[in-house]
Design a protein around this nucleic acid. Structure first.
Length: 651
RNA sequence: GCCGACGUAGCUCAGGGGUAGAGCGUUUCCUUGGUAAGGAAGAGGUCACGGGUUCAAUUCCCGUCGUUGGCUCCA
């Protein structure tokens, strides 16, 4: 007999060789029907794997992420079988589960597939799934495994097997299909009731652009047809919220082929919105002791050689700008920090004067590869809400925590409640990727973790994600559809002060190196606006939205009155406009709704008589007739409830 | 940059070897209206660009540019 510990802590005895499925059946018939995956002592096992020792067993259903993983991984086997049957001679490589679904990387050889082929693949895969074929794992010797794929002529699988130890190689069979596989499957293919092939894309073998390019087939599957329908609806919703679509509809920004790809043009409404975001942050930064600085868009190449950016990004950035003078070269600035270092260098500082906090909405240029460009989230010219804090090593912890406060204030004011943070540290395996000595890195990493602890942030540490000049803390925001975005960033930097020979005089009358903090709570204005658009679906917070109210005169007779109301709204700094078109009220309302304007103010005979406005909220709620003053109060109250000032005194 | 898809009116899209269509928008006229589309008429297109095949190309083929889904990278 063996002792099986379940997640609730209970221990049950079973005959040696029992299976997770048998345990599930012992607990309840219902669980047995739903269990699709299990871990034993932390290791993924099949639901039919015999358990030979005491241990902890966790059973998973579709409701658990682990269950979904097994489900999607199993689905990739089924799709792979379908592909092999439809396109004989293709070479399969790897087919893992991903966050939402799975993919299979395939060398299609002579075959070409496009989205027109998806329905046939889905049909074939579903046919296979309906056969309720069991997934059966078996151990295979390395020699046998190599032989199998040599016969199949699949050099990719051979490469995978070469890197595995004899004795740990397993194959998985279902129906007529066999694949090299580590394991973690659902009991049989019959659980898969809905399969959707989502897209195909190129992907290099092992992510290396020097290796052959494979075709990656993305798909997703579900245990119920209605789950697939719901998922497709979510994708539709994401499409509706796409910032590129909304940006066009709401006239915020555009792109021009003539100007160049990846170079956004901000339209008046978008520019004004950006301006409000900047003012909002400037106000908070002023309170937090920042000083604004301004630096030009280009700098001598030498500047970036000193900073190390040239060595790191030179090849991938805009090529140097030459002047009439021989050998003189300038670069479009890829970052603001070198300029700010030189601003710091403008005069000597005493430790009594630190920290210095230099802020600038600095526009930077990076030559992103054309395939990387995406709406406003990945562009070639963008404005960072950048600042660099120069402080003594002793001030670092406090400064870092203050920046966290500022970032939290920014997120709170814009309605992001669901976020986490990530501490990015070195990859210990690749020290050559980073500049600066290991002990300096060690100190910087520790400072960040200390601050995150002190601020009780929900954080995870990720190795290898640090910038080349220092570790960082990133804010990861979940938007309304649950998608993760990387936003503001705070980075510690001991390297640039060294490179630019920054100093301050300490109380010992000696020169010391300051520490630098790079930080950008928005990240970049472009990306932040994109995220806000997708998060809010275009329904920005009232303080930020381009048009807060629109006056809708019932007929031309009431335009004069509408203008009068508009005037007094403007005196109260409410952004409003009048729809003066010769259209019916119904039509004006419909279009104001589609423009997502928060308040529709209907003015007609009655309102003019009473000196009121009829207020309709976006979405249809009727707030009745209000005086202009009552409406102004309403707007002001709503704004002040979301937009508190930074470090507001409690009264 | 690489692989796939796409590029038709200001916008969203249909069409297809014989030089083009819808809805919305826009213009003009009628209508002066009460909480998500009042009516009529008109204007608007070198079918992304360049080449090839063809009697004939917007349609088929090739290339370029751009957009897009990924790969690598990053704010």
């Amino acid at each position: 007999m063996i002792n099986i510990t379940l997640p609730d802590g209970s221990i049950k005895q079973y005959a040696r060789g029992t299976t997770p499925m048998a345990v599930a059946r012992d607990i309840s018939e219902g669980l047995a029907r739903n269990v699709i995956s299990a871990t034993f002592n932390g290791k993924t096992v099949e639901t039919v794997t015999p358990l030979a020792e005491d241990g902890k067993l966790v059973l998973y259903t579709w409701q658990n992420p682990e269950g979904k993983k097994a489900f999607w991984h199993s689905s990739s086997h089924v799709v792979a079988q379908a592909l092999e049957e439809l396109y004989p001679g293709i070479k399969l490589t790897i087919g893992p589960a991903i966050e939402n679904g799975f993919y299979y990387d395939v060398d299609f050889g002579e075959h070409h597939i496009s989205d027109k082929d998806f329905p046939a693949i889905e049909k074939k895969a579903l046919e296979i799934a309906r056969g309720k074929h069991e997934f059966k794992m078996r151990e295979v010797s390395k020699a046998r495994a190599l032989e199998f794929y040599q016969e199949a002529g699949n050099e990719y699988k051979l490469e995978l097997i070469e890197n595995l130890e004899d004795g740990e190689i397993t194959f998985c069979d279902h129906d007529t299909f066999t694949d090299l596989c580590r394991g973690g499957h659902i009991p049989n293919t019959g659980f898969i009731k809905a399969i959707k092939i989502l897209s195909v894309a190129g992907a290099y073998w092992r992510g290396d652009e020097n290796k052959p390019q494979l075709t990656r087939v993305y798909g997703i599957s579900f245990p119920k047809q209605k789950d697939l329908t719901a998922h497709l609806e979510l994708l539709e919703e994401a499409k509706k919220r796409d910032h590129r679509k909304l940006g066009k509809e709401l006239e915020l920004f555009t792109f021009s082929q003539k100007v160049g790809q990846g170079l956004p043009l901000w339209l008046p409404k978008g520019a004004a919105l950006r301006e409000r975001l900047e003012q909002f942050l400037k106000k908070a930064q002023k309170k937090a002791g920042y000083e604004m600085v301004v630096s030009p868009h280009i700098g001598q190449k030498e500047l970036y050689v000193t900073s190390g950016h040239y060595a790191k990004y030179g090849a991938d950035s805009f090529q140097p700008i030459h002047t009439p003078k021989e050998d003189e070269e300038f670069l479009l600035k890829p970052m603001n920090c070198p300029h700010h270092c030189e601003i710091y260098n403008a005069r000597p500082f005493s430790y009594r004067e630190l920290p210095k906090r230099y802020a600038e909405f600095g526009t930077v240029y990076r030559y992103e590869q054309s395939g990387e460009l995406h709406g406003l989230t990945r562009v070639r010219g963008f404005t960072q809400d950048d600042a660099h804090i120069f402080c003594t090593p002793g001030q670092l912890d406090q400064e870092f925590m203050d920046v966290i406060d500022l970032s939290l204030y920014v997120l709170g004011s814009l309605g992001f409640e669901d976020f986490s943070t990530q501490v990015s540290v070195r990859d210990p395996e690749q020290p050559e990727k980073y500049i600066g000595s290991p002990d300096i890195w060690e100190k910087a990493e520790q400072a960040i973790i200390n601050a995150a602890e002190a601020k009780k942030l929900n954080y995870t540490v990720v190795e290898g994600e640090a910038a080349f000049y220092g570790p960082k803390l990133d804010f990861m925001v979940k938007d309304a559809l649950g998608r993760q975005w990387q936003l503001g960033t705070i980075q510690v930097d001991y390297n640039l002060p060294e490179r630019f020979e920054l100093t301050y005089k300490g109380n010992d009358n000696e020169l010391h190196r300051p520490v630098m903090i790079h930080r950008a709570p928005f990240g970049s204005m472009e990306r932040f606006v994109a995220l806000l658009l997708e998060h809010t679906g275009g329904n920005f917070p009232l303080w930020l939205i381009p048009d807060q109210a629109i006056l809708l005169p019932v007929s031309e007779k009431h335009e004069k009155y509408a203008e009068k109301v508009l005037n007094s709204l403007e005196n109260h700094e409410i952004r409003a406009l009048i729809d003066q078109r010769n259209e019916t009220v119904g039509k004006k309302i419909r279009e104001a709704e589609m423009q997502k304007i928060p308040f529709m103010l209907i003015v007609g005979e009655e309102e003019e008589q009473q000196g009121t406005i009829s207020v309709r909220r976006h979405g249809g709620e009727d707030l009745g007739k209000l005086s202009v003053q009552q409406f102004v109060d309403l707007v002001e109250k709503e704004i002040s409830s979301t937009l508190k000032s930074f470090k507001e005194e409690k009264v």
